[in-house]
Design a protein around this nucleic acid. Sequence first.
DNA 1: CGTACCATGTGAACGACGCTCACATTAGCC
DNA 2: GGCTAATGTGAGCGTCGTTCACATGGTACG
Lengths: 192, 192
Amino acid sequence: MSTAAASYHHGDLPATLVRTALELLEEGATDLSLRAVARRAGVAASAPYRHYADREALLSAVSAVGYTELAQDLGAAHPSPSTADDLAAVAVAYVHFALRRPALFRVMFGEPCDHLSPERVAATQAITGYVHAIVARAFPSAEPDAMSTAVWALVHGLAFLFLDGKLEANDDQAVAVRVRAAVHAVITSTEK
Amino acid sequence: MSTAAASYHHGDLPATLVRTALELLEEGATDLSLRAVARRAGVAASAPYRHYADREALLSAVSAVGYTELAQDLGAAHPSPSTADDLAAVAVAYVHFALRRPALFRVMFGEPCDHLSPERVAATQAITGYVHAIVARAFPSAEPDAMSTAVWALVHGLAFLFLDGKLEANDDQAVAVRVRAAVHAVITSTEK
DNA sequence: CGTACCATGTGAACGACGCTCACATTAGCC
DNA sequence: GGCTAATGTGAGCGTCGTTCACATGGTACG
């Protein structure tokens, strides 16, 4: 009802491809192949090219979905964080997202990434805006740009270090403790 | 004279392969192919398999070199940082390394990464130790584990965000300013 | 109601890749 | 000087991204 609508030969192929790609990523497929997506969607290997210029274009579309789902997770963790504790909760949600959907997270952030893709740019701006809002609320006395950059980098760095096994990620609980500790360590006295 | 020595058929192939791979990465080769390395080294595509189990094994060896060069850069930025300014200088060096050698940096950190590889584990421990030492010196009153995690994550996150174009990286100067500002924003009052 | 057109999907093909294996070659040891 | 094991070769397998000529079918227009 939402996106898919039977209208052409196959149905709504563009959306089907994105959905199928997400499925494969969820199943743990590290570096997703266009042919595998087409196969799973029941379509010839060349069909996707009618809708996406190349592999990267499909991945961009997939990333876009990932960004909105990440945003939902963050919003669910805390609608309008304003204390260090709130911020830590959001950080935990960010890291958990990365660990629960590692392949998707890598697609979103790990690849050289087409800077011109409007979806990517929009997503980046959305995140930037979100972080700025949090920072303005939680650290009214800090330099907004610098502090926003720092907060995003801290959280993003934590996600990648856990994801790459540079930090031990035994279970969600342990990760949460570690993330909260790191956020608090840095923020303790900067906090309003 | 350093590593290469003519001894077998070709010379010291393992070292030659690593050196060649680094060359290609330096020339901007995004996702390095084993065949390309072999070609450049003047050797059959199957030759590397005598010395490296697979592509990932060679990349691990390449990463190891990257880690030691990164460590050199950091040491050059400041031998024993103990103030926020010192730490900012190290952070700038870290980010500059990522931006000057993006392909190498991605090989080092971007891939799923074999956790069992002893080289990787050793490198991780080396970084951890280094960061702990800095933190103990610069923030003697902070919780060492949490603060170390936070500092590494902050710097690593900055590197990735710049690398992925999530933050504007027009020139080294601008990046340095931004990195220093972020580090200071976070650290200002935590500092002893 | 028919037909022409354009969007969509097909299948074969190309070159490149990672990796394996039977085979050639040479280095070092007796 | 000859033997053995280490080292390099070349062909080949299956997969990949991408392209292209062709088939198919919905839509719009006479």
